[in-house]
């Protein structure tokens, strides 16, 4: 009997596919998310749009809050650790969260190194804006990838950019001659073995969700049609006027992403979406995705 293997780590991500992972900050929200059909919840102190507004240092959520959420729902509970903060990750593992998100949404704790995720039994999901970043995280032991988007903006443009970037970089690799892969690995700053795997298989070796800026059922379906395996919705649900209805609509849109009639039906009559931000107004120095 073996626990904590890469197979069981990636296996949970496989089971989450086609689903919606919702950010929640307390047990009440977690219950609403589960009722809406979320396949998992992400426990955090504040949703990204509030983190963005508050400024300062954003850290791992209070363990008491995470426990409360774990006791309330039967679906998987994920939680965020700061980039490079392996002690926050150790704490989250001790709490038996189901996935750790080593997340750029929190303030990074280490500007050069990510967590060595191989030394944990708990699986990790990490953000990426391009293929090289995705493969570096996988090399460090990430069992799941999510494209970063720009969290807390309610603007899907960056999520689209990152998903399209990764897909087109994968297609480029798949068309390369074997001799070109060495140089490609150097350009991507990623291990040759992983680059070769992607070239041969035409996809990432782990599940890839979309995240960052999704606010509507149509946003979720757009990301699914662009090739996401599932979606994370952060501020988009609990910063909207009717989280329960919007959550359910986004779940249905993620399942029926290829059926415009269902998409029209579930998009109708939802109250106000979260207020959105234009990426240009944020200023490059305030973008989370480059962390």
């Amino acid at each position: 009997m073996k626990i904590g293997t890469m197979t069981v780590k990636t296996g949970l991500a496989e089971m989450l596919k086609g689903g919606v992972i919702m950010d929640v900050t307390n047990a009440g929200q977690a219950k609403i998310a589960e009722e809406a059909g979320a396949c998992a919840v992400m426990a955090l102190e504040r949703v990204p749009s509030d983190i963005r507004a508050a400024g300062g240092v954003a850290r791992m959520a209070d363990p008491e809050k995470i426990r409360e959420i774990q006791e309330t729902v039967s679906i998987p509970v994920m939680a965020k650790a700061r980039i490079g903060h392996f002690v926050e990750a150790q704490i989250l593992e001790a709490l038996e969260v189901d996935y750790v998100d080593e997340s750029e949404v929190l303030t990074p704790a280490d500007e050069s190194n990510h967590i060595n995720k191989w030394s944990f039994k708990v699986p990790f999901v990490c953000g990426a804006i391009n293929l090289g970043e995705a493969l570096r995280r996988i090399a460090e032991g990430a069992a799941m990838i999510r494209t970063k988007g720009e969290a807390g903006t309610g603007n899907v443009v960056e999520a689209v950019r990152h998903m399209r970037t990764i897909s087109s970089e994968i297609r480029r690799l798949a068309n390369m001659d074997g001799n070109e892969l060495f140089m490609a690995a150097k350009d991507l700053r990623a291990p040759y073995e992983l680059v070769k795997w992607v070239a041969e298989n035409g996809g990432l070796p782990v599940v890839n969700f979309s995240a960052g800026g999704l606010a509507t059922p149509a946003d979720a379906a757009l990301m699914m049609q662009l090739g996401a395996d599932g979606v994370f919705v952060g501020s988009g649900i609990f910063k909207s006027a009717d989280p329960a209805a919007r959550g359910k609509a986004i779940v249905e849109a993620t399942t029926h992403f290829n059926d415009p009639h269902i998409l029209a039906k579930v998009s109708a009559g939802l109250k106000e979406a979260m207020a959105g931000l234009d990426i240009k107004e944020i200023g490059e120095e305030n973008l989370i995705q480059f962390r």
């Binding site: 009997m1 073996k2 626990i3 904590g4 293997t5 197979t7 069981v8 296996g11 949970l12 774990q70 039967s74 998987p76 593992e93 038996e96 969260v97 189901d98 996935y99 039994k121 708990v122 699986p123």
Partner: peptide, 14 residues
């Protein structure tokens, strides 16, 4: 019995 063996850290191969 759902999640009978425990949370993800108890997921296993056998």
């Amino acid at each position: 019995r759902r999640n009978a063996f425990g949370r993800q850290v108890k997921s296993f191969e056998a």
